[in-house]
């Protein structure tokens, strides 16, 4: 069967239309960054990270914001957030006021039992900035 020119054009338009819709939908439902499987952009420790933020917040923001950062350090507090996710506070080893606060993703909840004050950990998460403390979100514990 021979397709008429009109049918061919119609068919092509349909394909293009479906592709555009598929692309739009995949954008709309695009998943969040999977921190768990991603390689860290920067590996550092809590004390150095805090030092950089306390020294020059703007510069540190340029370097760390939205990046996946792996922070090594000692846990000073284990808490639960209002929606029951774990919040780890990692100590500044020098005398400093600030800490690194890591909000673990819900997936990590079962690790709670292995997390204790004083323990050395490595936490990977996305840096959202600095208030009194450096804040990391969507974190996961790398080794414990």
């Amino acid at each position: 069967m021979k397709l008429t020119k009109r049918k061919k054009i119609g068919f092509a338009l349909l394909v293009v239309g479906v592709l555009i819709i598929a692309l739009a939908l995949s954008q709309y439902y695009k998943p969040h960054i999977d921190v768990y499987n991603a390689n860290p952009d920067i590996i550092t420790n809590a004390t150095d990270l805090l030092y950089e933020y306390e020294n020059d917040e703007e510069l540190a923001n340029k370097k760390f914001l939205d990046k996946i950062i792996q922070v090594n350090g000692q846990i000073s507090k284990v808490e639960a957030s209002e929606n029951n996710d774990i919040i780890l506070t990692i100590k500044n080893q020098k005398d400093g006021f600030g800490t690194v606060i890591c909000n673990l993703s819900t997936k990590e909840n079962k690790k709670l039992i292995n997390l204790k004050e004083g323990q050395i950990v490595s936490v990977k998460g996305i840096c959202t900035g600095y208030l009194m403390d450096v804040i990391l979100v969507r974190c996961n514990v790398v080794n414990n």
Binding site: Y28, I33, L65, T128, V137
Partner: peptide
């Protein structure tokens, strides 16, 4: 940046 949305877009 600490605001968490359901959709990443």
């Amino acid at each position: 940046k600490s605001f968490m949305f359901e959709k990443s877009l």
